[in-house]
């Protein structure tokens, strides 16, 4: 997995975002076992305590669960992942509409433009 982190924002929040993105895009599949905190931290070149904090947060919201003996796993609850996907899609769309506004398009104009492009393939 490719980690892209900047140092301006708290790193654990960025880690949560990126792991979520990984789950959505399928880098982490439902039920997959996660590498150890130490290995994940090394891979992302971040502090293990920070990685631990991010994973704890993901555990709290239920995307990841810990098995006392065998480590951490991605949730197998497909509904939850679908919900996360929906959430993420919504965020992206809202973000997109906001940017189109800055270009001077109203949401309706944006929608028309999107519909047109999708229909005509270009």
């Amino acid at each position: 997995m490719q980690w892209e982190l900047d140092s301006e924002r708290p790193v654990y929040i960025q880690l949560i975002e990126q792991i979520q993105a990984g789950i959505i895009s399928g880098v982490f599949k439902p039920g997959d076992k996660l590498p150890s905190v130490r290995d994940l931290a090394a891979e992302a070149t971040v502090n293990p305590n920070t990685m631990q904090k991010a994973l704890s947060e993901l555990e709290r919201i239920g995307l990841v669960y810990a098995n006392r003996t065998s480590g951490r796993f991605i949730t197998s609850d497909e509904a939850m992942i679908t919900k996360l996907k929906g959430q993420s899609a919504k965020e992206q769309i809202l973000d997109f509409i906001e940017r189109m506004k800055q270009l001077g398009f109203s949401p309706e104009e944006t929608l028309a433009l999107v519909t047109d492009i999708v229909k005509n393939g270009r």
Partner: peptide, 8 residues
């Protein structure tokens, strides 16, 4: 800049 991400 090179190491701050691994620091507590």
């Amino acid at each position: 800049a090179d190491i701050e991400k691994i620091l507590d």
